[in-house]
Computed example of a mutant assay.
Amino acid sequence: MTPPVDPARYAAYLGVMAVMVAAPGPANLFSIANGARRGHAAVVLGMLGMNTASLVWIGGAALGLAALATTMPLAFRLLAWGGAAYVAWLGLQSLLSARHPDAPLAHGLKLGGRSAFADGFAVQISNPKAMLFITAVLPPFIDASRPLPGQLAVFGGTLIAMDAVSMTAYGFGGAALARRMNEPHFRRGFAIFTGVLLIAAAALIALRG
């Protein structure tokens, strides 16, 4: 039985994706901030939101989104810039919260967005790395002599699995700092740090977009 993908191509794909997934891009920076401000459960929800967006991109590949990205680049730039503005807004909210470090935590500090899942989805749907995967990284690994659906399933499933591990690891690292959030001075400093982190992620999205 012929495998869905060529083993040699798949090995090369794993090497390329390992570098891309581990790099501290917008998704991983968001995971750190999300974990630190919301805790472990939100890390998982944020990761699920980001990977749901990745599934949208992978589904788009099956529908010829790569060709659309080539013929209508402005639409994709606008998508990236819109996502960058949203992430920058989250960062600004965090910076503003640093003015009131003595405010009660109630259910924990929040990033200011709707939910960890929705915020994660918004970050990844506008993440240029996801667009880059569809338009530049994936095509060279596609074998025209093999069925496309099987290849997309394998390559896309691998990306989702690797991203899930990386995003969760980054997020849990951020959540490890959450124990100190009851200290007002630490909370103020970390609110500033989180805000800067999110604005840096927004800058990455905008510049790469």
Rank of each mutant, 00 (worst) to 15 (best):
H40Y: 07
V21Q: 02
Y86I: 04
G156C: 11
L96S: 02
H107T: 09
R37D: 00
F117W: 15
A175Y: 05
A98I: 06
A161D: 09
H40N: 08
L48Q: 04
P101C: 08
A27N: 15
G60C: 06
A33I: 14
I192C: 06
V43F: 06
Y13E: 13
T71H: 02
Q151K: 09
A206S: 02
G195Y: 14
A178M: 14
A130N: 11
S145G: 12
L152C: 05
A144V: 05
V154P: 02
I134F: 06
L79D: 05
V56E: 12
L68C: 06
P101A: 04
Q151F: 10
S97D: 02
A69C: 08
G82A: 14
A206L: 07
G83W: 00
I142S: 14
V154T: 00
G60N: 11
R180V: 05
A130C: 09
A67V: 14
G49T: 12
L207T: 11
H107C: 04
A178F: 02
G157K: 10
D143S: 11
N182R: 15
T194P: 12
A116P: 15
F155H: 05
P139R: 09
A153D: 05
Y170V: 00
T168E: 06
M50W: 04
S145R: 14
I205W: 01
L92A: 07
F193S: 12
G156H: 11
F193H: 12
V137W: 01
D163I: 03
L204M: 13
F76L: 06
G83V: 03
I125F: 10
A130D: 07
L109R: 15
S145D: 10
P139Y: 08
L45V: 02
L55W: 03
I125A: 05
F117A: 09
V154S: 01
R180L: 08
L132A: 15
D163R: 01
G150N: 06
L65T: 14
M1L: 12
G82Y: 08
Q93H: 14
G82V: 08
A84Y: 01
A23E: 11
G49P: 13
A23W: 15
P101K: 01
D119C: 04
V43D: 09
A116T: 10
R114H: 13
F121E: 10
G39H: 13
G113T: 04
R146H: 10
T52A: 12
P128E: 07
L132H: 10
G83C: 00
T168Q: 00
D163H: 07
N28E: 06
I160C: 01
R77H: 13
A88T: 04
G173I: 07
M72N: 11
A80T: 13
G156R: 12
A118R: 14
L198T: 02
T71K: 00
A206R: 03
R146A: 11
L152W: 03
H100F: 02
L92G: 06
F30G: 02
M181C: 13
Y170M: 01
I142V: 15
L74S: 07
